[in-house]
């Protein structure tokens, strides 16, 4: 299969210096590809580095090491203003907290149009307003909302404004960092349906970062599991849920409570014990079965390959 890679992340590292010569390795050598038109889910607990990965890809943080290639071109490193503008237009982000990611002093019109202004995509005020109103309708809000301020909206509506802002510059790739975790259950479904619809209509590619595993499974084509700054497992979402290999993935999956009392009564939780790993060598990311990758050592690799073939 000829795979059309939109984004390649190669050995990405992000270390934070926290003073007293201490370094936190938030992201420590993560590699994956995202194909054009797919949704790539990134899951993990807080502190696993999933958000840092997203933010480093879009250059909100400067990477400590590694490469990010978008359409084959390196995103990081020294860039002229023109080059940066070009990338920023193709890559957009939707943030977790819809109330702190919108400027409370700006009207919805100005918030959504900011990208249009920066990239000089509209000629005059009339066109600018028309474009914003069109975007508002796309995300399911009213034209009249353009003159209002963010505090006049509910959480779900604010998240729609955030989505409209990301769509304004017609990006190819959107990073959604926990876009629904701050919303109520019934509103979550609305926003997820909207994201799915937009993807279908516009051929968008998503990096969907979340800790709600059932929602990630629902929206993603492929899922990567992060643990302490490393990607420990990566597979198609069906495969990952039906046939998890890495002990951490198993424990994470067994911890999700499902809205099904019968299942909950019979659930057995698996706890993750990092000492089960073979410590004789530094683990690497290896393909245990086609399209299914696990971080393991050579010894574990043989075992995991057997595990993967068994099922």
């Amino acid at each position: 299969m000829a795979e059309d890679k939109l984004l390649e992340v190669i050995n990405l590292q992000k270390h934070f210096n926290v003073g007293r010569n201490k370094i936190v390795k938030a992201v420590d050598g993560v590699s994956f590809d995202i194909l054009r038109g797919e949704t790539f889910g990134l899951v993990g607990e807080s502190g696993s580095g999933k958000s840092t990965t997203g933010r480093t890809i879009i250059r909100l943080y400067d990477a400590t090491g590694g490469e990010v290639k978008f359409n084959g071109e390196d995103v990081h490193g020294k860039k002229s203003k023109q080059e940066l503008l070009k990338f920023n237009r193709k890559m957009q982000m939707i943030f977790q907290d819809p109330s702190s990611s919108l400027n409370p002093r700006m009207t919805v019109l100005d918030i959504i149009a900011e990208g249009l202004d920066v990239h000089k995509l509209v000629k005059n005020d009339k066109e600018r307003k028309e474009r914003v109103e069109e975007l508002l309708e796309i995300v399911g809000l009213n034209r009249e909302h353009a003159t209002r301020f963010p505090h006049e909206f509910s959480g779900g509506q604010r998240q729609r404004i955030g989505i409209a802002r990301a769509l304004a510059v017609e990006p190819e790739f959107i990073i959604a960092d926990e876009p629904i975790s701050a919303l109520d259950v019934s509103i979550q479904a609305q926003v997820v349906n909207l994201l799915k619809r937009l993807q279908k209509e516009r051929g968008l590619t998503y990096l969907f970062i979340a800790h709600d595993l059932s929602m990630v499974k629902y929206i993603s084509d492929r899922i990567g599991v992060m643990y302490l700054g490393n990607l420990v497992e990566l597979a198609d979402s069906e495969e990952l849920y039906n046939n998890p290999i890495h002990p951490y993935t198993k424990s994470l999956l067994s911890a999700i409570p499902l809205p099904d009392p019968e299942y909950e009564r019979n659930r057995t939780r698996i706890t993750y014990d990092p000492s089960v790993h073979d410590s004789s060598e530094e683990p690497e990311f290896r393909e245990v079965s086609p399209r299914h990758w696990v971080r393991c050592t050579t010894k574990e690799f043989e075992q995991y390959k057997k595990d993967a073939a068994k099922k």
């Binding site: 259950v185 019934s186 979550q188 479904a189 609305q190 997820v192 349906n193 799915k196 059932s214 929602m215 499974k217 629902y218 849920y241 999700i256 499902l258 809205p259 099904d260």
Partner: peptide, 16 residues
């Protein structure tokens, strides 16, 4: 209906 189950594969979630 608005919560996906792990084996659900519907195109769209039932949103209120």
């Amino acid at each position: 209906g608005s919560m996906p189950t792990l084996d659900s594969a519907e195109e769209e979630l039932y949103a209120i």
